[in-house]
């Protein structure tokens, strides 16, 4: 009959849990920062982890090349197609080159590249570290006087930071190439105009902004995915949940960071 108190209760419950969620999120961010900073502090300490960084660069970076190439190619192709039909309405198909290039270099390269890396490399980092936690491999390392932060976390974060900007550059190049093929070879835009416009409109700042974003996303993904794995509840469910959370937090984090960085560069 009178459901006012119930409503009030619901509201309190809602804001209560929202508040708790928010506090937990802040707390995790703090934890993740501490974990990654204390791990990265081992970069210049003995023993030098160079070999393990290279191994991770290969696994995470080189291993992700194909998926980045495919994503880049189709992104460039779709952009050229969409751009062409939009621009054709105004008779300005010659602008296609700059349109495709700006969209890819400033936004789509870093963001889509980062998404692909969260899904492919980030999730595997979380799952791998989580399983090492469940099976006590991290404890075994500790017992052999090998610091898991230096050995496991550090190389993965560094590999992420180095490989994402490189992969994003590949994404850009392949995307532009694919855009050129669709625009010029298939749709018949003038090749000279395509490239001329592209070169005229892209400033060094655009390239720089793209790399800074890629670097930022690399740090973000590396930190989140290693943290989620390291702090996973040591059960099968815990690792599954951590992996999902890593992908969600990584992707959303990329979008938020993208907005922040874009607002700096524009």
């Amino acid at each position: 009959m009178n459901n006012e108190p119930a409503q009030q209760n619901n509201a309190i419950l809602f804001f209560g849990s929202l508040g708790r969620w928010f506090l937990r999120a802040i707390e995790s961010m703090g934890d993740a920062t501490v974990l990654s900073v204390t791990s990265l502090a081992h970069l210049f300490a003995k023993p030098w982890q160079g070999k393990h960084i290279v191994i991770q660069l290969y696994a995470l970076g080189v291993g992700s090349f194909v998926i980045i190439a495919i994503t880049g190619a189709f992104t460039g192709m779709v952009l050229a197609l969409q751009g062409y039909y939009t621009l054709a309405k105004f008779g300005s198909e010659s602008l296609l080159g700059s349109g495709v290039a700006l969209a890819i270099i400033r936004e789509l390269g870093p963001v889509l590249g980062a998404f692909m890396m969260v899904g492919r490399a980030g999730s595997s980092i979380t799952a791998e570290i989580g399983i090492m936690r469940v099976t006590e491999q991290l404890d075994a390392l500790q017992m052999m006087a090998v610091n898991p932060k230096a050995r496991i976390i550090l190389p993965r974060i560094i590999a992420m930071i180095i490989s994402l900007p490189l992969l994003v550059s590949m994404f850009d190049i392949i995307g532009l190439g694919a855009g050129y093929i669709v625009g010029v070879e298939l749709l018949g835009v003038n090749g000279g105009a395509f490239i001329g416009e592209m070169i005229a409109k892209i400033t060094p700042m655009d390239l720089y902004a793209g790399w800074v974003k890629a670097l930022g996303f690399g740090i973000l993904i590396g930190v989140i995915c290693t943290y989620m794995g390291y702090r996973a509840t040591p059960t099968t469910e815990g690792v599954a949940k951590a992996t999902t959370q890593a992908v969600v937090a990584g992707s959303v984090g990329v979008l938020i960071l993208d907005y922040i960085l874009t607002s700096f560069f524009l």
Binding site: P47, E136, Q137, M143, A145
Partner: peptide, 29 residues
């Protein structure tokens, strides 16, 4: 710990390494 050894209840071998590399691990390190 470099003077200690431990056999875990569920072995805790490093999954990514072969039997040889697991046993050699502390020596290599």
């Amino acid at each position: 710990r470099s003077r200690m050894g431990m056999v875990f209840q569920y072995s805790a071998l490093l999954n990514s390494l072969s039997v040889y590399d697991n046993v050699a691990f502390p020596l290599v390190e």
